[in-house]
Every structure is written in C-alpha cells, then in structure tokens.
Design a protein around this nucleic acid. Sequence first.
DNA 1: CGAGGAGCGA
DNA 2: ACGTCGCTCCTCGA
Length: 459
Amino acid sequence: MIRDFRIENHLFSPHLRNGSYGAFFEQATEYTIDTQQVNTVASSLWHIDILSSSHPILELESQVSTVLAKMEVQGVYVEKGILEELEQTLTKTIQSIESRVSTQTGENTVNLASPLQLQKLLFEKMWIKPLKKTKTGWSVDEETLTILAEEHEICRDILTHRHASKLLGTYVRWLIKYINPETKRIHTSYDTLGASTGRMSSNDPNLQNIPAGDTWSDEIKRAFKPQKSDWSYVVADYSQIEIRILACLSGDEKMIATIKEKKDLHLETAKVLFEKEDISKAERSMAKTVNFGVMYGITPFGLSKMLGKTPAECAVYIDRFFWLYPATREYFDHIVGETQKVGYAETFFGRRRTIKGLSDKNSIVREQAKREAMNMPIQWTCADILKHAMVKIVTVFETKKLEAKLIMQVHDELVVECPDTEIEEVTKILHEIMEHIVEWDIPMAIEVGTGKNWLEAKK
DNA sequence: CGAGGAGCGA
DNA sequence: ACGTCGCTCCTCGA
C-alpha cells in the first residue's frame, strides 16, 4: 500500500515549528506528546490554556486535521504526459535563448540564472545602464529588466528565460518528481497552522502556488485532472472574500451597500479616487490595488511603487479611500488599540495570536506590528471560514455516501473531484455550506466551476 | 549548509 | 522602512 508519504511524520508528530503544535493529534497518535510543553507554547501564542479548555478553535483544528489527513492520502492525480511534454518545450526554449545570447554577446559561459554573472554581462560587458541597487550590486530583477527590455532585446530574452526556468524547475520537474508511482497521484503535505495567520500551508510539493495566466502555466493546470474519464473537477472560489470580511467586520455602510447592490466595488472606489464617473480599465485596476493595499496597511510609498504614481498622489488616494469608507478606518484603529491593550489580536471565531511591538520605541517596529494587527483578523477570519467549510463539506459527502472527494485547498478555493453524475449535487452542497458558514450583512458568495481538468474548471 | 536574489500563489 | 502570509529555485561562499 501507500507507504512512503510523510503522513505518519506529518500528522502524528508534535511539530512545534513556527509556533504551531501537534496536540490536535493526541487521540490519533501513538506518540507521546509533552502536553506541558505544548501548553506553554499555546498559552504564550494564543492565550489559551489548552489543557483545561474546550476552545472552539481547538475543536476546529482537530477536525481539520482529520480532513487534511484524508486529503493527503487521497492525493491529486496529475497527468504525467502533459507535464513531460511541457518539460520538453521549456527545455528547448531555454536552450535556444542560451544559444542566442551566447552568439549575440560572444560569451558562452554565462549562466543566465546567476544574478551576479548577469550583472557583469549586462552592465560591465554590454554597458547597459543599471537602474537600481541591491545590497550587493546592481539589480537585475523583473522590474529592471522589463524597463531595459524596451531598448535591449537581450533583456526580453532573459525575462523569457527566467520565466521558463522558473516553471521548469519549481513546477514541472518538481511536480513530476512527486507523482507517487503507485497511486499516480501527488500527495502533498498540508500544515494546518503553516502560517502565523491561521492559514494553512502546503509543501513537498506546494500545491498552493501553482501558476496561472499564461500559456505554459495553463498547461500545468491542465495536467491536474480526475483520474477517471467519467469524473470531473468542481472548483469553488470565494469571490472577494477578504474585502467582504473587512466590510462586515468594520460594518462600513457604504461598502456593505455597494457589495449588497452587486455593484462593482473597484469601480465605485475608482470614481471617488479619480473624482469622475467615467473610469478607464487602468483606473479601475488602480482602484483595485488601493482596495487590497489598504487592507494590508499599505503606505503611500509602497502604493506609489505599485501604481507608478508619486507618493503624494497615493497619499491622496488612501485618504479618499478612508473618506469613502470611514468605518474601515475606525475599525483598523480599534483593532490596533485593542491588540495593544490585551497583547493579542483575535478573529471572529476566537482565534488569537500574540502581537508584539505595538509599544516599541522604534517606529519601524511599531508600524510593522500595526500592519500585522490590521491585516490578521481579516486573513485569519478568511482562513477560519475555509476550515469550517472543509470540515462540513467532507462530513456531508460522507454522510450522503457520495464518491466526491475534497482534494485541494488554495486559501479561498476548494477543489473537489467527483463522478460526473454527482456534479449537480456537489455544486449544490458547496453553495449551501460555503455561503452559510457565517451569516453576516453580506453573503459570502462563491463561484463554482466544473470541468475535466483544473484549468477548465477555473474558467 | 545558509544567505541572498528572484519569483510563484492567496 | 515603506503590504501580509507562504514555498522553492538557483548561485555562491563558508
């Protein structure tokens, strides 16, 4: 049978890394867990005495751990042939760029994957003007190369090269390596408390950052598919969940109304930011950046880098955002104040985490802590909603004796694999459960897609 | 083996 | 100093 996953390792060991702990597996494991040690960690991190408490978050996490174990064992089928074909294409592309660069420059020993060698080639041999510095030299990052590419063909090539190598190394080869020869499936490892925010993480391989959006990346997603031809994927995505959470937690009337009336929130924000009714596509996209940025406590400087505007202009945008949605500012102030007072931030579901530094005398440390305090209740609540949904979905699948299986979780997205005959029922179940985890001012709407592979189901 | 630069996702 | 949370690649130097 399936043996060599690190299932045992992962689920049944008290992994005390990154502040997380494995006490949830106490009943399922043969390991002896040092509950005293675990309790020390938990109480300092979460302000919970886990030995004597039946805290709802502990309850949730223990249920989630069972679901994750099932998902890991279940695995995800990946069609090897598609990946192998892509591997060929990418390898060829990389080779042809390498040979072109070497004829153009007369250098055949330059490793394009080495930033150091690349700097020498571009800035010392070809005398291209460098744009910005790093700690150790001149930057050759994507931003720089994109600008340089306008005048220098070679930079365009290097960007393509880098993209292709990234996909080849991090995804295509890496994924192929993890296909279990016996099950033909990839059995990733989830960590319920992988992120300090209550989000999960996935590793070996990480299935939560599969690329999307270009031809090659699409090909990767196409390789993820049900193992049987009469099965399909059903993919459910929370739409704009973080913004909805912010709207509900802050109770901002304007934001709630906009979403309730099914208006385009980014467009509405844009109208105020740019003080006009007629909004271009680019302006809407900028407003979207502002909407998201504010949730993370973005600064005018940071925003200016993303939008290509001056910090002064961006300061105005941020001001106008808060003018438009005044309760969000009050909410953020409130959160920061409360966090400072009690020493931890808390989500709707009662998940807590210590945040240090709000009273630090160093303003940089203080600002950092402030951003963390602002963002965490949002990101955490989102994570909690997903976790509740996962538990309920798996329970319903099992009680209804469906063959459908939950196979992936990507932060705000759940992927289910099921026989074609169950698609309709699964879709209904997903709507019923996911949209009713919380009953707030705004429905937590999901979008459901189906298809014969991950790419199709996402469209 | 670790640091640093880079880049993928939400 | 300048948006949060992750994982992994590659090179390079100890």
